[in-house]
Design a protein around this nucleic acid. Structure first.
Ligand SMILES: [Mn+2]
Ligand SMILES: [Mn+2]
Ligand SMILES: [Zn+2]
Ligand SMILES: [Zn+2]
Lengths: 138, 138
DNA sequence: TCTTGACTTGGACTTTGTCCAATGTAGGAT
DNA sequence: ATCCTACATTGGACAAAGTCCAAGTCAAGA
């Protein structure tokens, strides 16, 4: 994600300290933070960053396709910087941990034409749930 | 769902007017209402039913496995009385309409052992998104 | 260095949902 | 048929997650 800021500048973004910090927090793929978690971690680096700015920046990153929104349960959305490699999610039903997973067949191909009801289907996500090893042993 | 009330009585439920009305609203499969939509429809039949009771009853029905919770976007959860036939969902990304769909292959089989990371995987849901015919023509 | 439109901020507000003490009632007991 | 009481309902306070806005700040081009 080091070149993310470059791409964003290319799109006319002003490079503010706040945006830089949000990008840094999301850097190092494989995280799935809530907005509040992003805010907490951003605050460690830039104490006065506001919640509103974190929400604004996350929303912009999602619009640009640089970050994915993951709605797991009915709780807070999670933000996923791993937007450039197709993947799905495996979620622990007890502790909420999320892992990226890669699956063996294309789920888009599994939806027969008559089951599409005239929709222009453009996206599919597969969510697996179960108990993680950590929760199982406890 | 006519025998739902029988099953519930068998489980020791008191058959109150409120519970009856919530069950009636969810009757006739293929609906995916939010709690507030259930409340609005329940109010037409029983004007003084409270929001708290609708939430309580929906929660109980979910615990009993009679109704499924569907978390689509980050908005209100939807309640799905079609709990006894496996199915997945196709959602219009513009208007939010939900359709039940049946898929051709088993998505559980698509997750290879090494991608399970020691989880005891018990559940999988597939969500398709696209533009419905109605929204496409508008 | 100056200027200005874009960005940030704190707080009010909204939506969705939970919790609780007070009140009501379904259904078994008499 | 009536009584009893444990369970259910209610309204309103509260909480979590997110949006919106007017006022102040600042990145970056001139
Ligand atoms: Mn992910
Ligand atoms: Mn359904
Ligand atoms: Zn776990
Ligand atoms: Zn639509």
């Amino acid at each position: 994600m080091s070149d993310l800021l470059e791409r964003l500048r290319g799109r006319g973004w002003r490079l503010t300290a706040q945006r830089r910090v949000v990008a840094e927090v999301l850097d190092g793929d494989h995280v799935h933070y809530t907005a509040d978690e992003v805010h907490a971690r951003a605050t460690e680096r830039l104490p006065e960053i506001s919640r509103a700015t974190v929400y604004n920046t996350l929303g912009e990153l999602v619009s640009l396709g640089e970050v994915l929104e993951v709605s797991t349960d009915g709780r807070a959305k999670r933000y996923d910087p791993n937007a450039h490699h197709d993947h799905h999610h495996l979620i622990c039903s007890q502790c909420g941990t999320i892992r990226d997973v890669h699956i063996a067949s294309d789920p888009m191909a599994a939806l027969p034409e008559p089951e599409r009801f005239g929709f222009a289907v453009s996206e599919v996500s597969v969510t697996y749930r179960g108990v993680c090893p950590n929760c199982a042993s406890a």
